[in-house]
């Protein structure tokens, strides 16, 4: 750790996780130095993130110690135009498969790695799939057909709005109907004095109401 801090600017990200940033040209020197002179002597992952707005890949070599208690992120940026990197296979044999993976997913070349052929994709002729400009949804619609029944799978917010408005309309209609009925009944009540016949009108009213409320529920 002391060796590392002497030569490189080390920032601590969280507990037991450190970060060193280098440029593409002095990467090989840095990885050689770190893997031989400091305690971070094992490679545990090569991560790559595509920052298409800034037009570069951010490669992160995650190195770890023999005691497996600390991790170091060795970062560098790499151009997006199918550039290549020196392979670290000679230092870490496990890098072979990771580089193979990155080559397939991003199109990054690794000089010195002989096994950069198909890894998980077979007879793939499109863009490397993890690059940001590869549109997986367009690819899906071009190559696959969906079963019927997905047509109602619209944008949720638009659909919600439409249904809410429909429900509002229904409610307004219902309210208007009820209003009309109330007026009618009031008229009847004013015309007729109270009679035992009112029970029947009540029942009629509820029968009329029921289908309306059902429709409103469907609308929601």
């Amino acid at each position: 750790m002391k060796n590392l801090q002497k030569t490189y600017e080390v920032t601590q990200k969280v507990e037991r996780l450190f970060e060193v940033t280098v440029t593409q040209t002095d990467f090989w020197e840095a990885v050689l130095y770190i893997s031989t002179q400091t305690e971070f002597n094992t490679l545990s992952q090569i991560a790559c993130a595509d920052w298409i707005e800034e037009e570069h890949f951010l490669l992160t070599y995650i190195l770890t110690t023999d005691a497996r208690d600390k991790n170091l992120m060795l970062k560098l940026t790499l151009g997006r135009e199918y550039e290549s990197m020196p392979s670290v296979m000679t230092l870490f044999p496990q890098a072979e498969v990771m580089e193979r993976d990155l080559h397939e997913m991003y199109g990054i070349g690794f000089e010195g790695n002989e096994t950069l052929y198909d890894f998980v994709l077979e007879q793939w002729h499109d863009l490397p799939p993890l690059r940001r400009e590869f549109d997986t949804l367009a690819f899906v619609h071009e190559h696959f057909a969906f079963k019927g029944g997905r047509e109602d799978n619209k944008d949720v917010k638009v659909e919600q709005k439409r249904r809410r408005e429909e429900a509002k309309k229904q409610k307004a209609l219902e309210a208007a109907k009820q209003e009309a009925k109330k007026q009618e009944t009031e008229k009847q009540e004013t015309e007729k004095p109270k009679e035992p016949n009112t029970h029947a009108t009540d029942a009629e009213e509820t029968q009329d109401k029921k289908p309306d409320t059902k429709e409103a529920e469907d609308g929601q």
Partner: peptide
Amino acid sequence: TINGGMYWDSYNTIKKLEE
């Protein structure tokens, strides 16, 4: 296998097996 399921937008899985 029926209609893509959870991987409906994946570029590498088929959506309808019956095809």
